[in-house]
Design a protein around this nucleic acid. Structure first.
Lengths: 360, 360
DNA sequence: CTGAAAGCGCTTACAG
DNA sequence: CTGAAAGCGCTTACAG
């Protein structure tokens, strides 16, 4: 119980070796739990370590082993419940395997993402999990392979590359949500996303850089086209953050031929739509039907509770981490592009359009 | 434009030095941007680095400098919007200062927290920001000081220690929320927290290990006592996760003398309370008044929107990071225990108790 | 401004 | 099982 002054100089293997009267190599072996050490020596070393309050320097260890026992993660925004939940899946799997996780935000900005990947690579992470902000700007991802580290794409693909990836079948999910609305008799169905887009209006074949959103738009367009809806692209609203999701929602609902149903590309958008609809004095689902991507917990307690597309987000993160670990260990990878299905959860925000809502 | 094969062996300063025909020291100086290097040599080295696709090893650098440019963070649960938001504040400030952040979850478990602190210390983080799960079990935090690294407590204090901390005045906030309810005429006011507690029922003076919750309970008790409410502790419900927040809510609302108002200690609890009240066929605020801690975004779109206690969460994280950076740089610290005020945001979930709800 | 050498705290062959 | 030496990829005095 001798007091241990907070010393500036850290105690090292050399100190322990001296105290235990063995060589540095032997002390290190006992401390690092590798190689051969006799029980007598081991306990002597461990006692000295305890006494001196020894703390291994993981950096030095990593320099020798070439492994940092760390997985680097780059997401768009940790405040987005989607990523927070996926992060949980990643952390749980990584922790169970003895790996730490370094998290970085890209703010969905390609340059910030590049910088984040660089930093993580410099820190010698053993693998990288990235949700690329753009599927078109992914040249920096080749650095990961060049550095000889495994890379797993989370939730989004990269054009023209065959990186390991864990995604959701967004196209089918969006088509199903659209079909649900069509089945109720809706014909003016809108889809709102905040994904940046260069043109003022979406036109079929236009390139959406984030693959998850691109897939959803494809799914919506496909379902609408199959149903014989003319000019289905009119309801596709991208880049909604620029002018404001509330403004976009208003436009959709206040024109001559207002939308009777809206699909929100994430729960944050859904929240604003929900609020705006109410502000306009309209009712859900009587005047406007609403389907939201992501089964955010609040969606079940609103009046009415929302019909949502539930993605297996935690599993998405867990699967990404599992893939990364398999690659790190050089194990055979069962499936290098895991695709999960999303489920439509029917609650009470969808109903048939009424004549009132049709004419508004 | 020569193809760069993905080599297992990383290219090092030595490789660059050879290519640029200078010494390792000089190459390192140009690469690391320190010391003196002539422009001619610098560009030669940089060109070689570019050509060979050089990537500095941050681990090696850290070993020499003794600094990792990394701040370690231990929170209870990143999925909790509270921590996700605080994390954002931490990240933004850290990034702006050129620091990375390593995030670890403790699951509000003291042992997991200890392990997390150990790992972070071993990884040589330059400072630690911790939201201690228990204010009573904080012996592992002394290791941080022993390792000579700054420590900042986030949202919660540690008993008997004077670590830097950034907290919210929870006592006043809780007292104010309680006063709001009292002013409306409520006398049977309950407070629900999921904080573990050894006894079946709370009794005045009982020790709650998480300081933020302890402070809130104190605030509630104080306001209730000042108002002359007899046995105010009867409404304090801790450890609600064990039996279920819904079960606890039911008990509170179904007894002979049901509570007429509930204060939820966080937004997750509030959500379950909200739902349970509805399931019981009761109305908010006619039958039950509700105030929630944390201005979660969904609280403004429910019917009715909730009256909440808004904590400056982002600022909490940002201030913690700022404090950590000041300590790292050895700067003078203006305030080693920053305390923020919380604000009561009045919406529509509080009303006077009706005779109906009083007799129920 | 540049270089040779030592060192950061470990691990890894290689002898014994 | 134990030790002396070299090495991981950088940085840091110290000479020149």
């Amino acid at each position: 119980m001798s007091p241990r002054p907070a010393s500036r100089r850290a105690v090292t293997v050399a100190d322990i070796a001296r105290a235990a009267k063995v060589s540095k190599a032997t002390a290190a072996r006992a401390l690092g739990d590798y190689g051969q050490v006799s029980d007598a020596v081991r306990s002597r070393v461990l006692a000295a370590a305890e006494e001196l309050n020894y703390r291994p320097n993981a950096l030095a260890r990593s320099m020798n082993t070439g492994r940092s026992n760390t997985i680097g993660v780059v997401v768009g925004d940790i405040e987005n419940p989607f990523f927070a939940h996926a992060m949980r899946g990643i952390s749980d799997v990584a922790s169970a395997a003895g790996y730490d996780v370094i998290l970085t935000n890209s703010d969905e900005d390609v340059e910030a993402e590049e910088a984040a990947v660089d930093v993580l690579l410099d820190k010698q992470v053993d693998a990288l999990i990235v949700a690329p902000a753009s599927s078109a700007h992914v040249s920096h991802l080749t650095d990961v392979a060049a550095a000889g580290r495994p890379l797993v794409l989370l939730d989004r693909r990269a054009d023209g590359h065959r990186y390991d990836s864990v995604t959701v079948d967004n196209r089918t999910a969006a088509a199903r949500a659209t079909a649900e609305l069509l089945a109720e008799g809706h014909r003016r169905i809108a889809f709102i996303s905040t994904q940046p887009y260069p043109e003022p209006a979406y036109s079929p074949g236009g390139t959406i850089t984030m693959s998850s959103v691109a897939d959803r738009v494809d799914g919506v367009m496909e379902a609408l086209t199959d149903a014989g809806i003319p000019s289905p692209e009119r309801g596709i609203r991208l880049d909604a953050r620029r002018r404001g999701v509330d403004v976009v929602t208003r436009e959709l609902l206040e024109g001559d031929t207002p939308a009777t149903a809206i699909i929100a590309s994430d729960s944050l958008i859904a929240m604003t739509v929900f609020q705006t609809v109410r502000t306009l004095g309209l009712r859900i689902p009587e005047d406007v039907s609403l389907i939201a991507f992501d089964n955010a917990d609040w969606t079940s307690i609103t009046t009415p509770p929302l019909t949502v597309v539930e993605q297996p987000i935690y599993e998405l993160g867990a699967a990404a981490a599992r893939l990364a670990l398999q690659r790190i260990r050089g194990e055979r990878v069962d499936d290098e592009s895991v695709v999960f299905d999303a489920a439509l959860i029917r609650r009470a925000s969808v109903a048939a359009p009424t004549p009132a809502s049709a004419t508004h």
